[in-house]
């Protein structure tokens, strides 16, 4: 965890919504609320971890922030300036990049490593001579621990871990400030995950990067994040410092998530009650009214079905959205 340099956020997201129109019958469409009113901010040099079950909208949040999907509504403010027009977006693309979850489908099988890493340089015309381009590509490969001899090879010749390094080098090419890391290690072997995570941290220190780090694995996020946000069904349910959320989770959903994390110490493990979530996550097409978690929540009351709990600051720096916090033990 690197030092957080100042208090004004590098990126701020206000009430972001992303609704995908889904065809239900004939020409009728229904909105699939993949992200439904999410707000948070990330300070320069900070890592915000984003966790939640698969399908809860993490990837969509990351992609919408980068304007890969046009937001249905809400504001994205980068470095104090809202990102709205095509010109804003073009400029924004040089500062914010993405590392994708799947190191296989995110690299074009017909391109060499050098061309993949050099693509952002080509698109933004960031070099004057071929030599300059080549030198920059080799420098990037060196950053991520790839051998310069690999430059002329095709991505399919590499292992998953090496492919993900190529993806990271591509994300670093434009010298970005902010990187959305969408489950960058979940497709990798456990033995390689730690290496790649450490590399993310080293790069952050060396280059002063800010991360939105999406993950599935709570141990991984805890290791790398300064703060952690928990999502459920397109909504943010809890947000706090990494240690705070691990030691004192408040929202019933966060509690159940954390109770399923394996703990190395058997005494602690025994002391921790395992809370097993019943039922499946509802489809975002037919989300429950009020609190999205109420169909699986042990503490649900009538009010939960009627209104969506407000996402409010419960303790300094600790946000949570639940009507019945005082009853949750």
């Amino acid at each position: 965890m690197s030092e957080i340099r100042n208090e004004t956020p590098l990126i701020e997201v206000r009430n972001l919504k992303e609704h995908f129109p889904i065809q239900v019958s004939g020409l009728k469409t229904k909105p699939l609320k993949a992200v439904d009113g999410v707000s948070f901010s990330i300070k320069r040099g900070e890592t915000l971890g984003l966790v939640g079950e698969s399908g809860c909208g993490k990837t969509t949040v990351g992609r919408t922030i980068l304007n890969l999907y046009k937001p249905t509504s809400g504001e994205i403010i980068y470095d104090g300036k809202p990102i709205k027009t095509a010109a804003d977006i073009k400029e924004f693309r040089k500062k914010a990049t993405m590392v994708f979850q799947d190191p296989y489908s995110s690299l074009n099988p017909r391109m060499t490593v050098a061309d993949i890493i050099g693509e952002p340089l080509d698109v933004h015309k960031l070099y004057k001579t071929k030599e300059e381009r080549q030198a920059r590509i080799l420098e990037l490969m060196d950053y991520v621990g790839l051998n310069s001899e690999h430059a002329a090879r095709y991505a399919h010749e590499f292992s998953g871990g090496q492919r993900q390094r190529i993806g990271i080098a591509r994300a670093l090419a434009v010298n970005p400030e902010f990187i959305v890391c969408d489950e960058p290690v979940s497709a990798l072997d456990v033995s390689i995950q730690a290496q790649v995570i450490n590399m993310f941290q080293e790069l952050q220190e060396k280059l002063g990067l800010t991360y939105l780090f999406i993950a599935h694995d709570l141990l991984v996020v805890r290791h790398i994040s300064d703060r952690i946000a928990v999502m459920y069904l397109g909504k943010m349910v809890e947000l706090a410092d990494a240690d705070e959320i691990y030691d004192h989770p408040m929202h019933p959903y966060s509690k159940s998530l954390l109770s399923s994390v394996p703990v190395p110490d058997p005494n602690i493990a025994r002391a921790n009650k395992r809370i097993i979530l019943e039922g499946d996550i509802p489809s975002p097409l037919n989300a429950p009214s009020g609190c999205p978690f109420r169909t699986r929540c042990r503490y649900a009351t009538d009010v939960c079905a009627q209104s969506m709990p407000e996402f409010k600051e419960v303790k300094p720096g600790h946000f949570c959205a639940c009507h019945n916090l005082e009853n949750v033990d």
């Binding site: 995110s106 017909r110 698109v123």
Partner: peptide
């Protein structure tokens, strides 16, 4: 394919994507 999205994330537009990513494949 995600590599098309990745190209969009770097700022590439229609023509670049068709020529570099779609047609060769």
């Amino acid at each position: 394919q995600e590599y098309v999205l990745a190209a969009q994330a770097t700022g590439a537009r229609g023509k670049w994507i068709i020529m570099k990513h779609l047609l060769p494949n």
